[in-house]
Simulated assay, not measured.
Amino acid sequence: MDLNQVKQLALNFIEEVWNHQQYDKLDDYLHHDYVDHSLPTALPADRVGLLKWLQATSQSFEHQTLIEDQVTEGNKTILKVKMMMTHIGLWRGIEATGAQVSTTGYRFYRIADGKIIEHWAAIDGNVLETQLKQKVNKGCQIPE
């Protein structure tokens, strides 16, 4: 694959699978030897674990991943992402608040045979938790 194809593969994966929850397209994007280095330890580090994570995330949040920057070299690409989310279900013990929250981070993909073979992510979930707890723990509000 050339650099533009590597870049576009990652962008399309984010848009179709993450943003539009088209889980039936996982096989279009994931190599049969796919390894996800960013999943919670309770999940297998493969396509099954990724699917479970995608489904759990979508039960807790309506989410949209925006790409802020991307650098691609050879068969690797890294994306700086911003995730815009609405809290619609239980997450980290916090019942749905309807709050709109956001976080930023990075996703790194390695490509082999035209598909994603490895993924690493650094997404700040603690920022989300802090934002949600602030929404929940406001207490009584006195009008100004």
Rank of each mutant, 00 (worst) to 15 (best):
H31D: 07
H31E: 07
H31W: 00
H31A: 12
H32T: 11
D33P: 06
D33V: 10
Y34C: 01
Y34N: 02
Y34I: 00
Y34G: 03
Y34M: 02
V35R: 13
V35G: 10
D36V: 05
H37C: 09
H37D: 07
H37L: 14
S38T: 05
S38H: 06
S38G: 11
L39P: 03
L39W: 02
P40D: 10
P40Y: 10
A42S: 15
L43Y: 09
P44R: 14
P44E: 13
A45N: 13
A45C: 07
A45H: 11
A45D: 03
D46I: 08
D46Y: 08
D46K: 14
R47N: 01
V48W: 02
G49H: 05
L50I: 01
L50E: 02
L50H: 00
L50Q: 00
L51C: 06
W53F: 10
W53D: 06
L54T: 00
L54F: 08
L54C: 07
A56S: 11
T57N: 10
S58Q: 03
S58A: 12
S58I: 00
Q59D: 13
F61C: 02
E62A: 15
H63G: 15
H63D: 04
H63I: 05
Q64A: 04
T65N: 02
T65V: 11
T65S: 08
T65H: 06
T65D: 04
T65M: 10
T65P: 01
T65Y: 09
T65L: 09
L66E: 02
L66Q: 07
L66S: 04
I67A: 12
I67G: 04
D69Q: 14
D69S: 15
D69T: 03
Q70I: 06
Q70T: 06
V71R: 11
V71L: 14
V71E: 05
V71C: 08
E73D: 12
E73A: 14
E73G: 13
E73S: 14
G74M: 04
G74Q: 05
N75D: 13
N75V: 03
K76N: 06
K76L: 03
T77P: 10
T77D: 07
T77K: 14
T77M: 09
I78V: 14
L79S: 01
L79P: 00
K80S: 07
K80D: 06
K80Y: 04
K80V: 13
K80T: 08
K80Q: 14
K82Q: 13
M83E: 08
M83L: 14
M84P: 00
M85Y: 05
T86A: 13
T86W: 11
T86K: 15
H87M: 05
H87V: 03
H87N: 11
I88N: 11
I88K: 14
G89A: 12
G89I: 09
G89S: 12
G89H: 05
L90A: 12
L90D: 12
L90W: 00
W91V: 07
W91P: 00
W91Y: 14
W91I: 02
W91Q: 03
W91G: 01
R92C: 04
R92E: 12
R92S: 08
G93W: 08
G93T: 06
